Simulated assay, not measured.
Amino acid sequence: MNRFARFGLILAVLIVLAILGGMHNPAFLTTDNGLSILRAAAMSGIVALGATFITLSGRFFSLALGNTVMFTGITLAVAMSYGMPFYLALTLTFVVAIAIGAVQGAIIAMGANPIITTLGASALLAGLAGFATNGVNVAIHSDLVAWLGNARIIGVPTQTWAFVIAVAIAWWAINKTRFGHETVLLGANSASARAAGLSVARVTITVFIIASLAAAVVGVLAAAQFSKARVMGFSGLDFDIIAAVLIGGTAIQGGRGSPVQTALGAVVIATIQNYMLLLAWSSGVRTMITGALIVLIVVGFHLAGNRRRTR
């Protein structure tokens, strides 16, 4: 299935979800609810855009991004609690994110399994966060941070604007830069990439840094939204990130994918979850149904692609 066909299918799924949601609950189609959906999609979608680079490069997934979001938010909050100005604390947060991504990328570039490496990194980040905070949330007392997390520019939340900007940057980086072409080539055919003189280590480290920086952006936005950094509450984020990448059609073996479609995948997930929240369904039921729908969508896309190739 080509990129445009998959884009059309994802868009069709969104339209069907909107129609069904509106038929059963008129509140679903209100402007405020639509903005809520996009805001929720932004919080997983920005990280999913970073994860798309990892998957495109043939490095499967990172299971540390949810805890990277949590840890970077805590980094910002702890730094500010010691009197550090916001801009310096923000710089420190991004430096920490770069280090987190670079270390994981370097280990994986040496031949380590990406899943095991990132799972270990996730556990390490969770442990460090618990040690630094004693397991409690860290408050942030700053009007600027509160504005960043709750402002609406032209009526649209800052998280949504950040999402739109991130989509544009990711699309440009993948489609218009040498690094983007190298990332796709590495995922499509690693042997050819090496034969062409491509530095596998450099690309691998860079894609993990990009994903960690995307997680840091969401960590800052999440902490700003509630004026506190939460130690808990990100357990399901890795699932949403991977689901958005898969629904968006990025090939799990690498070499094929689109950040725009990843963004749409995040919106699909947020739309499904929003509708179930309006129905006041329990967390367990929401998780079960979301997982089932994601499996159906991914399998449907796979079967459609196979049918097209056999014609």
Rank of each mutant, 00 (worst) to 15 (best):
M1H: 04
R3K: 15
R6N: 14
R6L: 15
G8N: 06
V13D: 04
V13F: 06
L17S: 07
G21I: 01
H24V: 03
A27P: 01
L29R: 00
T30H: 10
D32K: 13
N33S: 13
I37W: 11
R39Y: 07
A40G: 13
A41I: 11
A41D: 08
G45M: 11
V47K: 00
A48H: 00
F53P: 00
F53L: 04
G58Q: 07
G58T: 03
F60V: 14
F60D: 08
F61R: 02
F61L: 12
A64G: 09
N67C: 02
N67F: 06
T72R: 09
G73N: 09
I74D: 00
L76W: 03
A77P: 01
A77K: 02
A79N: 05
A79H: 01
M80I: 07
S81L: 03
M84H: 04
F86W: 12
A89P: 10
V96E: 06
A99I: 14
A102I: 00
I107L: 15
M110R: 15
A112G: 04
A112I: 04
L119A: 09
L119N: 05
G120C: 13
A123V: 12
A123R: 08
G127P: 05
G127S: 09
L128C: 13
A129Y: 11
A132V: 07
A132K: 05
T133C: 08
G135E: 13
V138T: 04
A139T: 11
H141D: 15
L144C: 09
V145S: 06
V145R: 01
V145W: 11
W147L: 13
A151E: 14
A151Y: 10
R152I: 10
R152T: 10
I153H: 14
T158D: 09
T158K: 03
W161Y: 03
I165N: 03
V167Q: 14
A168E: 00
W171N: 11
W172C: 11
A173H: 01
T177F: 10
R178S: 14
V184G: 00
G187D: 03
S190C: 10
A191S: 14
R194F: 01
R202T: 08
R202K: 14
I210E: 10
I210N: 00
I210F: 01
V217F: 01
V220C: 04
A222S: 15
Q225H: 15
F226W: 12
K228I: 05
A229I: 05
R230E: 09
V231F: 08
V231P: 00
F234L: 04
D238V: 05
D238I: 07
D240G: 02
I241Y: 06
I242F: 10
A243W: 10
A243N: 06
V245D: 11
Q253W: 07
G255E: 08
V260N: 04
L264D: 05
A266E: 06
V268Q: 03
T271L: 12
I272K: 04
Q273A: 07
N274R: 04
M276N: 04
L277P: 00
L277G: 05
L279C: 07
L279T: 14
S282D: 14
S282L: 06
S283E: 14
M288F: 15
M288Q: 12
I289Q: 06
L293S: 06
V295P: 02
I297K: 07
G300L: 02
F301C: 12
H302G: 10
H302N: 14
L303W: 13
A304F: 05
N306G: 06
R307C: 02
R308T: 10
R311I: 06
